[in-house]
Design a protein around this nucleic acid. Structure first.
Lengths: 252, 252
DNA sequence: CGTAGGCTTGAAAAGCGTCAATAGGAGTGG
DNA sequence: CCACTCCTATTGACGCTTTTCAAGCCTACG
């Protein structure tokens, strides 16, 4: 257990929670005063598995992770992608039995916080509680968009949409430079996220590349040539991310 | 504006919120003391539309409703189905701009509550706030399962899964009798919920019927012959609904 | 170098969509 | 009570998107 200090890792959490509500100085101090432990998890490792009893909530300090669920046939579906600043596993730890797994895409540093401390904080400081509730609501909004993405869009649109979402969220998290980024997922994982096979993901990405919508110096390095055009192909409207005006604009 | 009384419509909300946390007498009174208006909305009517500024949250007192989003091609995707006791539009009204529409499947009675009163209650009575937060978390869990359903399951499994979910939720809401129920959706709406076309929904349902997994006296009247078998076909595990033990068991 | 994981590509099959036509039931107005 | 209309369910034929299976290739890493 560390104590909050000037450069606490929990500053990341403060940043995330301040995003949608105005937190006063005491609120911020209370967040920074949360007990936590920092843990590094390697690629492929799980923070929690489906059906387990989750005992820890966490904030991602660096790296990328996904939440996923398995189906009877053995395939899996990724239901969300997470990066720096995201609260993960609140869902599982507050609801007792995990309904999904949380797995690292890359090596991740995570600040683990006991769930009961989070509940306590939410009770004692209503604005912090509200911030976390809103964060959960936005989480839900992103899930809804994903249902739409896999339910009613063709492969080309799905992939373009995912690339747009990832790009914009990187920017909001302060990780993006221009429209270039390193996609931390294999094409099989992209398939798991879009409800496609890796083979079809490959063909679709190459098609997007041939159309000039994206460029790739290597398979994972995505460069978005014309953001607006890709957003149009991907039927992408950032509304569902519920970003505030003070956050980076969409155009870029 | 009515005042809370012995048989307030808001008892429905108390029932829902008591489901996952223990609320004391004062918590219950505070919920019943919320200002509200009761409104009847006809079939097909909207409580709120995508992109609108939502100003009212509601609890369904009777009837059925769906949340949906439209895609560029004009098709739509239903992202959840709601019934008595469900809180709808908290998402939209707390997040300012609506990211989805809420539409009635049947005539609905809804108790409308000003969102700011809900926020106030959540701040003043932390356990009520926690109950609503948990409700939002469960909402998210159901969305995750729907992503999996449309993303990684074939038509037969998807439909069987939806029929199981609906049946179980009816039972939990106190609306189900045995394994018979009236499905308040057209086959086109079922298609919108499962990411299929109405034509394929029709064929799939008829196939399920031929297999003896369900019986139908008329197109909407579903009778589940063998719950366990349908759940197996539908890859259905009720875990994601996060029901408490004191709620009706799955087998039936 | 040698192995493993990820990427790429081709050919064929399958599942689901599209188009189109028919039928039944509920409500409406004459 | 009948004619009419609209909405929903049903079914067939055909086509297309995506999957499946399979093979080869590249690159990182031990």
């Amino acid at each position: 257990m560390n104590r909050a200090d000037r450069h606490s890792p929990l500053e990341t959490l403060v940043r995330t929670l301040s995003c949608r509500v105005d937190l006063d100085k005491d609120d911020r101090s209370a967040i920074l005063a949360l007990p936590f432990t920092t843990k590094t998890l390697e690629r492929h490792h799980y923070l929690v598995r489906e059906h387990d009893i989750a005992t820890r909530s966490g904030v991602i300090l660096s790296g990328y992770a996904v939440r996923s669920k398995a189906v009877a046939s053995g395939e899996r579906q990724i239901v969300s992608i997470h990066m720096k600043g995201d609260l993960i596993d609140l869902q599982n730890s507050l609801l007792e039995k995990s309904d999904h797994s949380v797995q690292m895409l890359t090596t991740c540093e995570i600040a683990l916080i006991p769930p009961e401390e989070i509940l306590k904080l939410a009770s004692e400081r209503p604005m912090v509680g509200r911030a976390m509730w809103l964060e959960t609501l936005v989480d839900g909004s992103v899930f809804r968009e994903w249902i739409v993405n896999v339910g009613r869009r063709d492969a080309r649109t799905r992939i373009a949409h995912l690339l747009c979402e990832f790009s914009l969220r990187l920017k909001v998290a302060g990780l993006g430079k221009d429209s270039n980024y390193e996609l931390p997922m294999t094409q099989e994982q992209l398939g798991d996220a879009t409800g496609l096979t890796s083979v079809h993901v490959n063909r679709t990405i190459k098609a997007l590349e041939r159309e000039g919508l994206i460029e790739r110096s290597d398979p994972r390095a995505i460069h978005i040539g014309d953001w607006r055009k890709l957003a149009e192909v991907g039927d992408f409207d950032s509304n569902y991310l519920h970003l505030r005006e003070n956050e980076p604009a969409l155009a870029g």
